[in-house]
Amino acid sequence: MRVLGIDPGLTRCGVGIVEGTVGRPPTLVAVGVVRSDPALDVARRLAEIAVGLEEWFDTYSPEAVAIERVFAQHNLGSVIDTAQASGVAALIGARRGLPVTFHTPSEVKAAVTGSGNADKAQVGAMVARILKLSAPPKPADAADALALAICHAWRGGHTNRYAAAAAEARSRR
């Protein structure tokens, strides 16, 4: 299964693609970030994120999308920006008929490091180790996106029953 992990953000949206299934080590396909210009208004920035994400979908043809679930933060503006970028990513995946699953940060940390309380450095180090990379991907948004993709691949996409049912229906066509 080819999974596109997305760590949503309005300035930097981490993207990472792995191939893998339950019980097998995942392999890195691609990693990076999609950026938007902070000088633009929010609508134009979201449009830039959408264009960048569309290029990743077109280039790498993922079979599933894993997005970090937005959680409450102290900075309300940051939560809103992240939620808007998350919605853009989910919409692109849904329009392409792909299963889109949201994973909480603690769920991803636990899957990758064994601890739901791991810090960013631990997540990056484990992503590098799992994917046999010489160093954690930079910036941290890119490593987080890979962690999302790994988490989803290892769980077989079954954390979201709707997404699993949709994938099953597509495979029967």
Rank of each mutant, 00 (worst) to 15 (best):
G97F: 00
H152D: 06
D81W: 01
E107Q: 15
G93T: 11
R12W: 13
D7M: 00
G157W: 01
R95H: 09
F71M: 10
H74L: 15
G97T: 01
A66S: 09
A90S: 12
P99T: 05
R95D: 04
E168T: 15
T11W: 07
A85Y: 00
S36F: 14
C151F: 03
S78I: 11
G52T: 04
I67W: 00
S115E: 13
V33W: 07
V42Q: 06
R2W: 01
T159F: 05
R161T: 13
L148C: 08
V31W: 03
L91T: 11
A50H: 04
H158W: 08
G114E: 14
I92C: 04
D144C: 06
A165L: 12
V108L: 15
R12P: 11
G23C: 08
G32F: 13
T82P: 05
T21Y: 05
G116C: 11
D141S: 02
G156K: 02
E54I: 02
E55I: 04
E68V: 05
S36T: 10
A153L: 00
D144W: 10
S86N: 08
A128M: 05
I92M: 04
R2S: 05
A110R: 15
A89L: 08
K132S: 08
V127N: 10
I17S: 01
P26I: 09
L28R: 12
V31T: 10
I67F: 02
L91D: 01
V127G: 08
R2E: 04
R96A: 04
D141L: 07
A50C: 00
T21I: 10
K138N: 10
L148N: 09
P8F: 01
L148R: 09
C151Y: 00
A164C: 11
G23L: 03
G124Y: 15
K109N: 11
A47P: 08
E48G: 06
G52Y: 00
P38R: 09
A167M: 10
G14C: 02
L76I: 12
L98S: 04
A167C: 03
L40H: 13
S134C: 08
T101F: 03
L46P: 01
K132I: 10
R161W: 12
R69K: 14
A89T: 07
L76D: 11
F102K: 00
I150R: 06
K138W: 07
E55W: 06
P25E: 14
V51M: 05
C151M: 00
E55N: 09
P8C: 03
E55Q: 15
I92L: 12
D144G: 13
I80D: 00
D58R: 06
G9V: 11
G116S: 07
A169Y: 14
A149Y: 07
G5W: 08
I80H: 02
R24T: 15
A72W: 11
